[in-house]
Design a protein around this nucleic acid. Structure first.
Lengths: 260, 260
DNA sequence: TAAGATTTGTTCGTATGTATC
DNA sequence: GGATACATACGAACAAATCTT
């Protein structure tokens, strides 16, 4: 199993290929090794000094390789006795940030995002109907109650909109389908960031508030009653009016250049 | 503008926080700087030696920071005169791999993926109808023609399935909505990887072949005719039968642990 | 509390590789 | 080919964090 002595890190660069620096090569080799060993979350990787011996590279090179893996969320590192590097699970936050970077230059529009929300969110609530425990339903109602009155100022309106997006985000957290949950949470975050950074929704839009609140209350009712079809229809309507109300707003949606 | 002398890299670690190593801090600082300068793809970053002066850190630390940014696809680095680090656009491949890592331990099921394909792919073709130039349509037909006969062996069947997924992937490439296009391409890749790595679709499934081929030919016709409603219906049917045919198959879908 | 052991974190000096002119 | 301007890589020393006793 543990085949000691220097692993297969090409010493010479292949011709043609874009050329890969040695840290990258080492990082690739370590990844392959982790997969081949079937290591699971929390499993310990060889120590720095062992890596140096195993891959026959300097400490600096090994460390750069580890930083690469760490930046991707694949490993975590601790100092001290019992420390070292460990296989880590990629966090949602990091996954979102990494995906967000991809769209940094892509200039997504609000229309783009709503095209997908309209397709996915009704689907989500349809599968969620009757599946949520009472505490989860109560939490959703609490979020709705964070904006019992129409906003008086643009600032207040922003806060309300963010709370409303939080409602969708929490809903997504309960999805059995992890991919579906992730995507809805991702879009909620994009819209949330956008709301924070720009002067959207001014002047306060009373209609948006009224409709959004009504939809969300109806939705929770349908979820509690276990009526998936109804929940789906409510969300579809909700998305449609939300999109209409937002389309007058700014077009370009810049996702941020990251976060760790 | 270029405020020389050491930038704001915290010298002391904040209490409470999980503790960030200096390379990570430097990487964060550089990211912030790039954003604050509004640098665009291809813009040049300060040289290694200037970074050393600017952030008052050793070469090793700066290099680790650069590897972090590189691993996230945010910068590219070249050696030689005129070389250095440049702002880079995150490639689709990298974005897919990074997102794939997140789902590595998440055990997506085929059902999960199809739930989303069924929601998104009909939407895609509806917006694509009448929008594709003739060469693009011809290319799609070429992909369909890669499997004119039912597969004779499991190996052949696998190849056909991959070609069929390629059809969806190419379709996604033409989406105006970059988010929509990315997601459909991402799912096609997951399914493609799965098909390669496992023994799915054995014994050869003639029904899958017949139906899939017919749907795709009808679809291209509808796209050429510019009939979005029809295209949507065809894709919806296609997805539904594909899901039915695949649900008997293995349940767990492991996405790979990466690729650079 | 303090000392010691263990493991990663950081620095510096030097040498090598690579691309442009 | 040679000079130049960059990144790349190595190795040895020292610093900091954290666990154990």
């Amino acid at each position: 199993m543990t085949s000691r002595k220097s692993e297969t890190v090409p010493t010479k660069a292949k011709t043609g290929e874009p050329r890969r620096s040695r840290p990258v090569q080492v990082a690739d080799a370590i990844k392959d090794w982790v997969v081949s060993q079937g290591l699971r979350k929390g499993a310990r990787l060889p120590s720095e000094t062992e890596m140096i011996a195993r891959y026959a590279r300097s400490k600096g090179t090994i460390r750069e390789a580890m930083r690469i893996l760490e930046a991707q969320g694949l490993i975590e590192t601790r100092t001290g006795p019992g420390g070292g590097s460990f296989v880590g699970e990629v966090s949602v936050e990091r996954a979102r940030a990494l995906l967000g970077n991809y769209f940094y230059f892509k200039n997504l529009s609000i229309r783009d995002i709503y095209q997908i929300r309209r397709a996915l969110e009704p689907e989500l609530v349809a599968t969620l109907a009757g599946q949520l425990a009472e505490p989860a339903l109560v939490e959703l109602e609490t979020l709705i109650d964070q904006y019992p009155e129409p906003a008086a100022t643009p600032d207040e309106e922003r806060e309300q909109h963010i709370a409303s997006l939080k409602f969708h985000s929490r809903l997504a957290d309960h999805a059995d389908n992890e991919l579906l949950g992730f995507l809805i949470g991702f879009m909620a975050q994009i819209l949330s960031d956008l709301t924070v950074s720009r002067q959207l929704y001014s002047p306060p839009n009373v209609e948006l508030w009224q409709r959004g609140r009504a939809y969300q209350m109806d939705l929770v009712r349908a979820l509690r009653a276990g009526d998936g079809g109804l929940a789906r229809r409510i969300m579809a309507d909700h998305m449609e009016t939300a999109q209409t109300l937002m389309e007058g707003q700014e077009e370009q949606v810049l996702t941020r250049f990251f976060a760790e």
